[in-house]
């Protein structure tokens, strides 16, 4: 009899997503679902969907969900976790949601040390609204609201969220990963696993920033998008662990070189 060696994680709903071809949201969803399965926490997990491309994330997992207003997911997560500390609570947010309109909520959620997990998907652009400039858009990168490229004199430089949150004194786990190649995806899953484990143990706030592609709004084919991410985003957004609750600071990602 054939042995099943690969199947859909139980925490992932058996549905087709609405994501564009080449988008990495689907990969990140799957990695989260696998971690939820492996930790055996599906029945006590509550997710929080953002406003943005992942607004329908509640349809793609087999866990209870709350839909937050734009940027407020860390506040919603705080409310859930304070009401029910036994639940495993995670938010799934994009860069417009978390790094622009929701900057206050993410900083204070991390600073209070809420025992929740934040998955921050950084694709350097507003996806759902049609490719506008994000706080994480690269200098010179073209977007619909910076058609000549991001001008850092006018718009400032991209915000490095992982670095920013790692400056907070409150213990936390903060990491940045990528999913544009299988090897990087394996590392991203390890980061997510560590993040959820810290929550399961009741240790600390955890956030994993995941560099992601947006072929549609970047205006390039998926393979080229993966290359663009490696060449342009990764030098500015270095991968690795930026903060751990035991005080150990940044360590480079092992074995994730091209």
């Amino acid at each position: 009899m054939a042995e099943t060696v690969f199947s859909r994680p139980g925490a992932l709903a058996p549905v087709i997503t609405h994501y564009c071809p080449g988008c990495t949201h689907g990969i990140i969803h799957r990695l989260i679902a696998e971690v939820i399965d492996e930790l055996g926490i599906r029945e006590r997990t509550v997710g929080i969907a953002p406003v943005g491309c992942a607004v329908l994330a509640y349809n793609y997992f087999t866990v209870d969900f709350q839909e937050a207003s734009h940027g407020r997911a860390p506040a919603v997560a705080t409310g859930i976790k304070r009401a029910r500390p036994d639940l495993i609570v995670f938010t799934y947010q994009g860069d417009g949601d978390l790094a622009s309109i929701g900057m206050a909520e993410i900083v204070h959620c991390a600073n209070r040390g809420e025992k929740v997990t934040v998955v921050f998907v950084n694709n350097a652009i507003y996806g759902m609204t049609g490719g506008q400039m994000a706080p994480t858009t690269m200098p010179g990168q073209i977007a619909t609201t910076c058609p000549l490229g991001r001008d850092v004199e006018q718009a400032g430089h991209p915000i490095r969220i992982a670095e920013l949150l790692s400056t907070l004194r409150t213990p936390s786990f903060v990491a940045r990963a990528a999913v544009h190649t299988p090897l990087y995806a394996v590392n991203a899953k390890e980061m997510l696993r560590r993040a959820f484990r810290y929550q399961v143990a009741g240790t600390c706030f955890s956030m994993v920033e995941v560099l992601s592609t947006c072929p549609t709004n970047w205006g390039v084919p998926p393979v080229e998008a993966n290359r663009w991410l490696a060449q342009n985003m990764m030098p500015f957004y270095p991968l690795g662990v930026f903060k751990t609750p035991d005080g150990a600071d940044r360590a480079p990602t092992p074995g994730a070189g091209d």
Binding site: I48, A68, A75, V76
Partner: peptide
């Protein structure tokens, strides 16, 4: 929004 999250748990 914390109120929203907590209310969603039924408390």
């Amino acid at each position: 929004n914390m109120l929203y999250g907590a209310a969603g748990t039924g408390e």
